[in-house]
Amino acid sequence: MNFPMDEPLFQFLYWIINTPGVGGIVVAVETILIVIAVSLSLRWIKRGADAPEREQFAYPTPALHHYEPKRRGFGGL
């Protein structure tokens, strides 16, 4: 039995893997997505500095996650 290549789905899938340039597009899209995701996470971390919290820590401990900081104005630093 032959592979059902006349199915439009399989023709489309074969077109994807056999067309020159699609590979480059996939790598480009992948790179862009990762760079966007990483930049957004980094921005998210950077924005964390704007939270109205007084204390600064040089290192964390697990207790930090349950700790209620003294919320004051940022200008009070």
């Binding site: 893997i17 056999n18 020159p20 340039g21 590979g23 480059g24 790179t31």
Partner: peptide
């Protein structure tokens, strides 16, 4: 050309895809 004419059927392109993700990651 590996990207300009990249063909996904070739395992070299699979490699390009996964190494790119791995390197950036």
């Amino acid at each position: 050309y590996l990207f300009w004419y990249g063909r996904l059927q070739s395992p070299l392109l699979w490699d390009a895809v996964s190494v790119t993700a791995y390197f950036l990651g």
